[in-house]
Design a protein around this nucleic acid. Structure first.
Length: 481
RNA sequence: CGGGGCGUAGUUCAGUUGGCUAGAACGCCAGGCUGGGGGUCUGGAAGUCUGCAGUUCAAGUCUGCACGCCCCGACCA
């Protein structure tokens, strides 16, 4: 018997970056493409994206948001209308200068984000207070010419949703931006089982053109942090640049206040990193394409029948279940394959199970096999499996939450700060005077940047970790992906 | 965009001081025996050795240039 060559996948603990890439490629989530920096998302990975879309789309619609589509190409001049915006995005743009064999009069930018092309339309569509709020969302792709790429986390082209709303007042816009944050938080924590920190970005880290950027950040097992989503309060910056005005009830011409918010295929990267182990992917039950894989160990009629009975019963209750009855693969091969692909529960059906009226269940998150006796032949499997899926979902979240707690360091000296960044990394919670200069120096010296000021942060008295001047809040710092 | 590494079968790679009719393993295809942790036997298909130019009787191997990919930094969701 040949043993599985574990060298095909590096260990998560010792070769984290390599492990991450191996798991994606071998798990058939994605593949490299002929175009540098662009990735192919394979069916198994795309199915995860579809589940993400389906959950978020439903929640957005619950807030009254409608989906729309805007063009891939944006006139170059549009981007220039908002000063910070163009400065932020210029280095990353792909620009089309030739069309149909002829040089274009005005270059077209491949959208890096759609604010400008949408708000040009908004300026025509919004005339009256009755037109507000205007709540639109796009499911599309965007292009940002990244110098260095990494599957799912940083690719030149990526998929996302971008929501864009216009409101009558600053407060309305702020409330909406925060409602979106709640949706993202619920999604990240309850569906992806990844705990997030929710807060506000510093001036230097905010979206180019925004007044306030809110973000959700998650700590990964290697001690770095991934931004899981953002929700921007754009103030009236774009309204002024694009002249988006409405007549209020008193007949006064007013600028609108806007939000934009996004969550991308990047979260799939976070999903892989957060839960995976040396065997491969570990997918939370609520997001995985397949929740239960049934593997017939015997080829007897009785075993085949039993597999099919289990499948029908689980399917009837909405569980995503699949039988792997491929003739050409051996049982051991199938075990390894579905572990690599992160299926939460495996049910093995052979002669023992039939004879003893029991179920052999393998839990992917714990890599543990257990045998469950059934009281009689008519007892249903469903409650067992449903409860177990819930239990796994919770266990994955709790595990990550515990990890975050253990790797969040409240520090009071810069030496301590530096020491942590040099060794175990993780989240650092420390006073900062909010001077961009201190922030830049800390980043240059330790790689840690400010991540967020928690939404519920209380005002305290302290001294900036770097310069020692008076500081009123503690911020989260970490090295970001 | 800087620094490093590498381009040979689908994949990972081997290929000696230049001698090649270019190999292995895994994978793939056909069939047999199997089946509780990547099982096994037999047979088979598969290559513009990244490209271009040069040196040479002879280039996968040496030289130059180009292109591509991977890794590490700065930029970024």
């Amino acid at each position: 018997m040949k043993t599985f060559d574990k060298k095909e996948i590096k260990k998560k603990s010792t070769d984290f970056d390599r492990w991450y890439t191996d798991v994606i490629l071998r798990g058939e989530l994605a593949d490299y493409s002929p175009v540098k920096g662009c990735m192919i998302i394979r069916p198994y990975g795309y199915e995860i994206w579809e589940r993400i879309q389906s959950f978020l789309d439903g929640k957005f619609k619950g807030l009254g948001v409608k989906n729309a589509y805007f063009p891939l190409f944006i006139p170059n001049s549009f981007l220039k209308k908002e000063k910070e915006h163009v400065e932020g995005f210029s280095p990353q743009l792909a620009v089309v200068t030739i069309g149909g064999g002829e040089k274009l009069a005005e270059p077209l930018v491949v959208r890096p984000t759609s604010e400008t092309i949408m708000y040009d339309a908004y300026s025509r569509w919004i005339q009256s207070w009755r037109d507000l709020p205007l709540l639109l969302n796009l499911w599309n792709n965007v292009v940002r010419w990244e110098k260095r790429t990494y599957l799912f986390l940083r690719t030149t082209e990526f998929l996302w949703q971008e929501g864009h709303t216009a409101h009558a007042s600053f407060e309305d816009a702020d409330n909406f931006a925060k409602k979106i944050l709640e949706i993202y938080k619920k999604f990240d924590e309850e569906i992806l089982a990844i705990p997030v920190l929710v807060g506000r970005k510093s001036q230097s880290e905010k979206f180019p053109g925004a007044s306030i950027t809110y973000a959700l950040e998650s700590l990964m097992p290697d001690g770095k942090v991934i931004q899981m989503g953002t929700s921007h309060h754009l103030g009236d910056n774009f309204a002024k640049a694009f002249n988006i005005r409405y007549l209020d009830k008193k007949g006064q011409l007013q600028y609108v206040f806007q939000t934009s918010w996004a969550e991308t295929t990047r979260v799939i990267g976070a999903l892989i990193m957060s839960h995976g182990d040396d065997q491969g992917l570990v997918l939370p039950p609520k997001i995985t394409p397949i929740q239960v894989i049934i593997i017939p160990v015997s080829r007897s009629d009785a075993a085949v029948q039993k597999c099919d009975n289990i499948r029908k019963e689980l399917e009837a209750d909405g569980i995503r279940v699949k039988i792997d009855n491929r003739e050409e693969k051996t049982v051991g091969w199938k075990f390894n394959e579905w572990e690599l692909k992160g299926v939460p529960i495996r049910i093995e059906v052979g002669e023992n199970e039939i004879k003893n009226n029991e179920l052999t269940i393998y839990r992917r998150d714990l890599n543990q096999k257990s045998i469950r006796q059934l009281a009689d032949k008519n007892q249903k499997y469903i409650s067992n499996i449903k409860d177990l899926l819930d239990e796994i979902q919770k266990a994955l979240f709790e595990k990550m939450k515990k990890f975050r707690e253990e790797n969040t360091h409240e520090v009071s000296s810069y030496d301590e700060f530096k020491e942590i960044m040099k060794t175990k990394k993780g989240l650092i919670y420390a006073f900062w005077c909010e001077d961009a200069n201190c922030e830049a120096k800390i980043k240059a010296e330790t790689k840690a940047s400010t991540r967020v000021l928690p939404l519920d942060a209380k005002k305290e008295q302290g001294r900036c970790i770097y310069c020692g001047k008076v500081a009123s809040h503690r911020w989260y710092f970490a090295q970001a992906y």
